[in-house]
Design a protein around this nucleic acid. Structure first.
Lengths: 181, 181
DNA sequence: CGCGATGTGTGGAATACTCAACAAACCATA
DNA sequence: TATGGTTTGTTGAGTATTCCACACATCGCG
C-alpha cells in the first residue's frame, strides 16, 4: 500500500464524482468524456491517464465500492446482523451519490447483480442447513431469498430518498435476518 | 488577460477558501501555513508558490474583492442606487464566506477600512454640495456619513446571518441613498 | 539554561497535469 | 454518397504541483 500522489487522488475523486452526478442527470450513453472532464474541472486527457474509457471508469468505481463493502463485512464478521448492517447502511449513506444513482438508473443492472453476488457470498458463512430452523432447506435457496430481500430493501431505501435513518433500517433488517439465520 | 493554467486556479481557489474557513473558526494568529495546506488539500510548498506568507495571502484576497467591487461599481455607474446596490449585495451573497468572516472577526479592521475607503471614493461622484438638498454641507462629511451607514448596514447584515434577501436590502438602502444624494 | 517539538521558508528531483494538436471514427443531414 | 460537426483516443512539450529534505527560528517546559 504505497503512498499515492495527492494529485491523482484529487483528480480521480473529481472524475468519479463528476460521472456519478451526470448519471443522476442523464442516461449513461449520452454522457461524453468532455462532459465528465468539464464537470470535474480537469483536462480531458487526464481522464485517459487513469481510465481507458467511461465504461472502465464506471467499472473501477463499482469495483472499489464492492471491495470496500467486502472489507467492511470482514472487519465486522463477529458482530450481530444488527450491528453489521449498521456498518453497511452507514457506508451507503456516506456514499449515497453512488448508490442512489446506481440503484435508480435502470442501466445499472450490472451493479445490482454484483451487489447481490457479494451479499450472497458474504452470507454463506452464516447460514446452516444441517441443524436449527433451516434444517432440510437448500442453502442456495435461502441465500438467494435473503440476498434478494436485502438488496431489494436497499434499493427501496434509495429510491425513496432514504426515508429512514441508517440506524433504524439497519436494526430492522438485522432483526429479520437474525430471526432466520 | 492571458489564459491562466487550470491548476493554478484550482490551487488558489482551494487555498483562499481554506484560510477563510479557518478564520471563521479561530484567530488569524493561530492559523499556520500547515493548517491552510491541510484544509486546502495542497502541498505546503504550493502556498509559497503563490503567496509570500499568510499575510500576503489575506492581502491578495482582500485586494481581489475590493477590485471586483470597484469594477461592479463602474459597470453599474448609470444605474440608480437601488439597482446598483442590488449588484453589490448579490456579490456579497455570492461571496458570503469572505464577507461574513471579514466583517465578523475583530482582527479584520483593516478590511473594514479598505471597504469604507472604497465606498466613499465611489460615492464621491454622486454627491453635489453646490446645489440641491445638500447645498452648503461639507462633501467629506456627507461621504463619511453615508459611507459609514452603508458599511455598517452590510456588517449588520452579515452579523445576523443575512436575515433579509439581497434584493430587499439593496432596495431599501437604495431608497435611503437616493433620498439623500 | 537546554531541549524537544513545532512552524517557516527554500531547494531540487520526480511526476501528474495541462494544453494544443492530430487522425480516426461516428453520425446526422443534404 | 458526400460532407460538416462532434467525439474519441493519443501524442509531445511545457509547467505546476508534489514530496522530501534541509537549515533556521520560535516557544513552552523541566
Amino acid at each position: 500500500m504505497t503512498k499515492v500522489d495527492r494529485r491523482v487522488l484529487k483528480s480521480q475523486e473529481a472524475i468519479k464524482k463528476a460521472i456519478l452526478e451526470l448519471m443522476a442527470e442523464k442516461n449513461f450513453d449520452d454522457i461524453t468524456i468532455r462532459d465528465i472532464s468539464d464537470r470535474a474541472n480537469v483536462n480531458r486527457g487526464t481522464i485517459y491517464l487513469h481510465y481507458a474509457d467511461k465504461y472502465d471508469l464506471l467499472d473501477k468505481i463499482i469495483e472499489e465500492h464492492i471491495n470496500n463493502l467486502r472489507e467492511l463485512c470482514h472487519s465486522a464478521s463477529e458482530m450481530t446482523f444488527k450491528d453489521g448492517n449498521y456498518v453497511w447502511f452507514e457506508y451507503f449513506a456516506d456514499n449515497h451519490l453512488f448508490f442512489s444513482t446506481m440503484l435508480n438508473t435502470k442501466s445499472a443492472a450490472y451493479f445490482r447483480s454484483r451487489f447481490l453476488d457479494l451479499v450472497v457470498q458474504e452470507y454463506k458463512v452464516e447460514v446452516d442447513v444441517t441443524e436449527g430452523k433451516n434444517q432440510g432447506l437448500r442453502e442456495d435457496v435461502i441465500l438467494q431469498f435473503f440476498g434478494a430481500a436485502v438488496v431489494g430493501t436497499v434499493e427501496w431505501w434509495f429510491r425513496n430518498g432514504m426515508p429512514v435513518p441508517p440506524r433504524v433500517i439497519a436494526e430492522q433488517t438485522g432483526i429479520l435476518l437474525d430471526r432466520n439465520f
